[in-house]
């Protein structure tokens, strides 16, 4: 016990037992070194608003000269919202944000399990409700009679992927009535497959079906592609179970287009001439528009477009960058 604590004991002994009876053992000074690391990097406090008046400053001038602050104040808080050991199901609406040659809008459902507070695994799938070539592509075709390589305009129908998620940063902000909202930034990465197709007839084409109505766009199947997903977003905890999810995810898939509906350029050429002697694996019937009112020569015309697309075998890596907005439920 040092000098100070001996003196102090006199003072303590005189304290009235307002709330607690004092023990009979003297007061010691901790000699423990705090087993903490300064390398922790978790200071992402987003102080959007301060909702209570600050107290009077209590830090006195330091009588001991230039020795710097003598104390630091911290918050070591039980997480109000926790993910570790919980599963999460999320439903998103998705919209492509880099749609130069294509536009994709759809729905996504993800299932995640949070192994730890900052690490999780996820499994998800997206279905593209609206996936077309972009207006720029239509314009190129109709005005300049040019169109992007098939690989550049490859459309995705759906995809499925599994991956990992990490939550490196967390934060909070206040909104009306001093309500504190906690959030966590996350990044995720995964791998899976994507089902693709190319658009043959443009969105604004004037072709008519057998009933005289506009035939609308037509598509040719380009098969399954390996896909990768890389994303980042924020999870805002509305309640301990419900979160608002905002995310940007880049779906990356290969786009070597050398066959359409399983047909090579030579076979497509035959289909465009009305011939049926195509190689096995070439689904010539797939070029025909669906529906009872399909024009009888729609297969020929579609195959003709396909033949143009395959005139230059193209390959690319498509980055389908999409915004995901939705909600999730932790359980």
């Amino acid at each position: 016990m040092n000098t100070a604590s001996k003196h102090l004991w006199v003072a303590l002994a005189l304290l009235p037992s307002f709330a607690l009876a004092e023990g009979s053992v003297g007061v010691g000074v901790s000699e423990k070194e705090t087993p903490t690391s300064k390398s922790e990097s978790k200071d992402p406090t987003v102080a959007v608003s301060v909702n209570l008046t600050p107290p009077e400053p209590k830090q006195p001038a330091n009588a001991f000269g230039e020795s710097g602050p003598v104390e630091l104040k911290h918050v070591v808080e039980i997480r109000p919202f926790t993910q570790a050991g919980r599963s999460e199901v999320a439903l998103f609406g998705t919209g492509q944000v880099n749609g130069k040659f294509s536009s994709h809008y759809g729905l996504d459902i993800d299932l995640a399990y949070h192994i730890r507070e900052s690490v999780g695994v996820w499994l998800g799938g997206s279905y593209v409700i609206y996936g077309r070539q972009s207006s720029l592509t239509d314009e190129l075709i109709s005005k300049a009679h040019e169109q992007p390589f098939a690989a550049n305009a490859l459309l995705m129908q759906w995809n499925a992927a599994v991956g990992l998620e990490m939550n490196p940063l967390y934060g909070k902000f206040t909104i009306v009535d001093d309500k504190v909202l906690h959030f966590a930034f996350y990044i995720n990465a995964g791998a899976g497959i994507a089902k693709t197709r190319v658009q043959l007839r443009g969105n604004d084409n004037q072709q008519k079906d057998a009933a005289g109505n506009l035939a609308g766009p037509s598509f040719g199947d380009t098969g399954y592609r390996p896909a990768g997903a890389l994303g980042g977003g924020v999870r805002i905890f509305l309640t301990p179970r419900w979160t608002l999810r905002l995310e940007v995810r880049d779906l990356i898939y290969s786009a070597l287009v050398d066959k359409i509906n399983g047909c090579s350029r030579a076979d497509v050429g035959k289909v465009s001439q009305g011939r049926t002697d195509v190689a096995s694996g070439c689904d010539a019937g797939a070029f025909k528009d669906s529906g009872a009112d399909a024009a009888p020569d729609s297969n020929v015309k579609n195959a003709g477009i396909a033949q143009d697309l395959l005139s230059d075998i193209s390959s690319d890596v498509i980055n389908n960058l999409s915004f995901y907005g939705g909600v999730s439920f932790l359980f």
């Binding site: 903490t36 909702n51 104040k73």
Partner: peptide
């Protein structure tokens, strides 16, 4: 910094703001 017991806790630096 003080020890953070486990991942059920989170750390913030106190910067004079009173968060409920």
């Amino acid at each position: 910094r003080p020890d953070v017991p486990d991942e059920t806790y989170e750390y913030w630096a106190f910067q004079g703001e009173w968060w409920p």
